[in-house]
Design a protein around this nucleic acid. Structure first.
Lengths: 339, 339
DNA sequence: AACTTCACTGCAATCGATTACACAGGAGGC
DNA sequence: GCCTCCTGTGTAATCGATTGCAGTGAAGTT
């Protein structure tokens, strides 16, 4: 399929392959006349570099791999979009893989990306502990940055938001709206996102004197279905809290939907908050109050860290960087606006 | 980074690189004793093939490229998921690119995938005509299948659903629910999806004797925002049709949202339908009646066609295959249940 | 006993681009 | 006039895995 090679171009231009390579990659001195001849020959033959051959020689592919827990979660797709934007500016490509929230699949994906000689890997680990070995192993072989979520016990760079600070914003806002008790609906505490968010939730609730019934901390997974089920359970107990804090927007969408189905007014009877500010969060009924993550900044930092890691030798890398960006609260209609 | 090579393994096992390669790739006869030695040496050194080198030699990468108009459209991400599933079974990887609905970006992505020697490309072209040259050019160089959308004037395989048949289902259902007039909200007629769906809509409306006001055919883009804007415009004219048929679910979600905002009852005053059956379609208020595309089947067929194309020589490929699968109607609450 | 046949293994070419090294010829310095 | 330096170009090695070809020795045939 790949027909035209540098050899054919060199023949047509009447020069050596070395010269053609020098012209086309812009390295090394070549006289203007020869440059023209080579370029024209390349043009006429429709030459295109064979990136495979180049990669073998340079051991550089100008490709970054990215692994996310779930490509169907809009938050991750928007993160992917941001990363792709940034990479494009650098002339790099993105190789995207979906781990389907399964550490085993994730490990395979990471190995496969490493085998394909990507220049670096951006990963949002599926599991807070089980993802550890594969991530560490990969990080030992090539530059790796964790994004959004992170896995314990590894020594890699990380970029994300300060979940604890975010929850402080959320809780203060709810408190201001009159909430004195709150429930938490998240995924199982097996990933850093829910873990951190729950920690922030619990701490600020305590500081504000808001009551949290241990039975009203419901953990399932990041899905609308789980949000609906959890809300139904809360309603059934007949003891609704003043607010339901959700670990992400999908859950929150499920919660508000179930509330509507059960005739529980939001935010009249109960306030609800999400997290991530996915596009659909404003489509809920009512539109969700949520936490916005600065995706572009996150992507920017991640790519920067990767580039930095590529430049330094593995051995003299300093301690890993942990960059926590500051999220913002987006107030919509699922909470009572504080005056 | 890539440390262990076949040469080191061969040295440790006391054989030639040729033998190592034969053992590891399972080709050619090797005595059991040597096999053991080689495998053990490979194991001990933690050898992993360098896929780049292999790809250069074999001119096969076991990688398929996929280009979609927008990775943030849930329909495409679910299509990607299906394709990835199927490819995994075949031991192939997916290289995903986002064209951001821009034929120019799309062309770059296609070229870049081709340069990376993917074994084949699956593309859902962004534009019904402007995507043509790049798609055709790429198809001339390697196996290519169009998915869902297609571009005119090219000679490639295509897999998708029968949009016209789908619209027949939709219109019959609406008619049964009492609709005698209908509006159509889609994207500009610059991609085959809207084009086909609109054609199907118009034809069946005529057959059923439903009236379609030319001013009530509104074309924008595939987004919730456009759906909202279009519905607002329809409401403002004060002359609402009995039904609003949307070219995709995002638009339909926007339409129902705007209806709610304007106090127009769905399906009481106006029935609304979507297309694609994305996960969020059931989260609308009311839940959307929509058309479900058999994504897994589509993915399956696409991969099958690619594989077939790879096996045959370019020159003796037969005429291109066009496979239109049959979609199904998913009836929810945005239409009036028939009978 | 001479001749095939076959399993096994190694040598070396190959894929296509890059680049260290060598070399030619001209410019400039003394 | 001789030496150095620089520009411009070619030759050939290199990246790592695969494979056609050839060679070796053992088993099987007549």
């Amino acid at each position: 399929m790949q027909r035209v090679t540098i050899a054919q171009v060199s023949e047509r231009a009447g020069v050596s392959t070395a010269t053609v390579s020098r012209v086309l990659s812009g390295r090394g001195p070549v006289s203007a006349a020869v440059q023209r001849r080579v370029r024209q020959a390349a043009e006429e033959l429709g030459y295109q570099v064979n990136t495979i051959a180049r990669a073998l020689r340079n051991s550089r592919t100008d490709t970054v791999g990215m692994v996310v827990p779930s490509i169907s979660n809009p938050f991750f797709t928007s993160l992917v979009e941001s990363v792709e934007h940034v990479l494009e500016r650098e002339g790099k490509e993105l190789f995207l893989s979906d781990a389907r929230s399964d550490p085993a699949i994730e490990a395979r994906r990471l190995a496969s990306l490493a085998a394909r000689n990507v220049d670096g890997i951006i990963v949002s680990p599926s599991h807070g502990t089980e993802s550890g070995p594969a991530v560490q192993e990969t990080a030992d072989r090539l530059p790796l940055v964790q994004l959004d979520r992170f896995v314990g016990g590894t020594n890699t760079d990380w970029v994300g938001v300060d979940d604890v600070a975010a929850m402080r914003l959320v809780m203060d806002h709810l408190h201001e709206g009159g909430a004195r008790s709150a429930a938490f609906v998240g995924s199982l505490l097996t990933n850093s996102s829910t873990e951190q968010r729950f920690a922030g939730f619990r701490r600020r609730a305590e500081e504000l004197g808001m009551s949290v019934d241990p039975d009203q901390v419901l953990l399932g997974d990041y899905s609308v279905d789980w949000g609906e089920a959890a809300a139904a359970r809360l309603v059934d107990t007949g003891d609704l809290p003043d607010a339901i804090v959700c670990a992400d927007d999908l859950i929150a969408l499920g919660v508000t939907r179930a509330c509507r189905a059960h005739g529980v007014e939001v935010p009249g009877r109960v306030q609800v908050t999400g997290y991530d500010n996915i596009e659909f969060s404003r489509l809920g009924e009512p539109a969700l109050t949520t936490v916005d993550q600065p995706r572009d900044r996150i992507a920017e930092e991640a790519v920067r860290l990767l580039a930095a890691a590529s430049r330094t030798k593995e051995t003299d890398r300093g301690p890993s960087a942990h960059i926590a960006l500051v999220p913002t609260l987006v107030v919509r209609d699922s909470t009572r606006a504080g005056s």
